[in-house]
């Protein structure tokens, strides 16, 4: 994890230096500056020093929690990131929840009904979901549910009619804490379509993985023993097989985090969701060098942390790993 972290700092550091143009041009905007002033501003940002010196002062700043200041908003990048992070986290969690609630049962049913039309139907749908261009899927759902049926809002997290003070940054929690009536339902309404769009590919992956994990487990001896003892299908599947099949599924969920953040870039752009994805796209387009640099590092770090948590959870769910470790 540590070498990878430094690898990412190198990428983020290199990014600004390789990019055509420089931060001062962005700061100056259309007006432009005189060459003297240009050099002066570059020196102010430390860009006149040798590269290795710049890199070490960059690393030094990172460990003091300073990832630079946005060229556009003039605010610390860390501050902006953590202000927007809850919105993305909320969206991502809801998407994963949606994927789990539908994907796991679908995978189990497909495994139990293996080879029947139910199995084939579920697998066809999930392969279609897996092949979905999600930006188009989002537009399609907006077209259907928001514009034609008027069921869901087109963009944003909450209607402007409500004034909910940010406490946790998670809109569902904040609206519950506030005394605005109906705001919780409104926030929920805003979350439905983006969560479905972002959750579509994870849903497909989880359904497929659950099915193959279940098939593998269902052919094990201990499941046959459980059946032979006369236990009901429900008990065999839900108590005996599912727990072991879940081990594979948890790993898969962990692998989804990175994909989820990539998906969030598209989903947030389509739904005007004020999160990290939309912010980083905006930063790339407005050539906000320091925001992209800091954003890259923070996103990569948060993925690493989530993966670490999944690894720890894995040991908790699969005691065999812990036993192996304590033996060796």
């Amino acid at each position: 994890m540590v070498p990878v972290f430094f690898g990412v700092t190198l990428v983020a550091f290199g990014f600004i230096r390789v990019l055509p143009g420089d931060p001062v041009e962005v700061l100056a905007g259309e007006r432009g500056v005189s060459p003297e002033r240009h050099a002066e501003l570059l020196a102010q940002l430390g860009f006149d020093k040798p590269l290795w010196q710049q890199y070490f002062s960059y690393i030094g700043d990172i460990f003091q929690g300073d990832l630079g200041t946005s060229l556009i908003t003039n605010r610390p990048v860390v501050e902006e990131f953590f202000e927007l992070f809850p919105a993305t986290a909320e969206l991502g969690l809801c998407a994963i929840l949606f994927a789990l609630i539908i994907g796991i049962p679908a995978g189990i049913i497909a495994a139990i009904k293996r080879g029947t039309w139910i199995d084939q139907g579920i697998m066809s749908i999930s392969l279609t979901g897996y092949s979905m261009p999600i930006f188009w899927w989002g537009l399609l759902l907006i077209m259907l549910f928001s514009n034609t049926l008027n069921l869901t809002p087109v963009s944003g997290r909450l209607s402007f009619l409500f004034d909910v003070p940010p406490v946790t940054g998670f809109m569902l929690i904040d609206t519950l804490l506030s005394d605005e009536k109906g705001s919780f339902l409104n926030a929920l309404h805003h979350l439905v379509l983006p969560s479905i769009v972002l959750g579509t590919i994870p849903l497909a992956v989880i359904a497929r993985q659950t099915r193959s994990a279940m098939l593998e487990v269902l052919s094990e001896d201990y499941v046959r023993t459980a059946r032979a003892k006369g236990l009901s299908t429900y008990r065999v599947v839900a108590i005996h097989a599912l727990r072991n099949a879940m081990i594979t599924v948890v790993t898969v969920i962990g692998l989804q985090v990175s994909l989820l953040l990539a998906g969030a870039i598209l989903t947030e752009t389509i739904f005007g969701w004020p999160g990290i994805g939309k912010w980083i796209i905006f930063s790339v387009f407005s050539r906000d060098y320091f925001a992209v640099q800091g954003g890259l590092l923070l996103i990569a770090t948060s993925i690493m942390i989530v993966n670490l948590i999944v690894d720890l959870l894995y040991g908790f769910i699969n005691p065999r790993i812990l036993h192996q470790k304590s033996k060796s």
Partner: peptide, 24 residues
Amino acid sequence: MRVMDTIMAVPGLLLALVLVAILG
């Protein structure tokens, strides 16, 4: 392998976006 781990640490689409920003 460390270089590959680094590439994998950043979500694919985001890395591609940043690279395109560099390349044009």
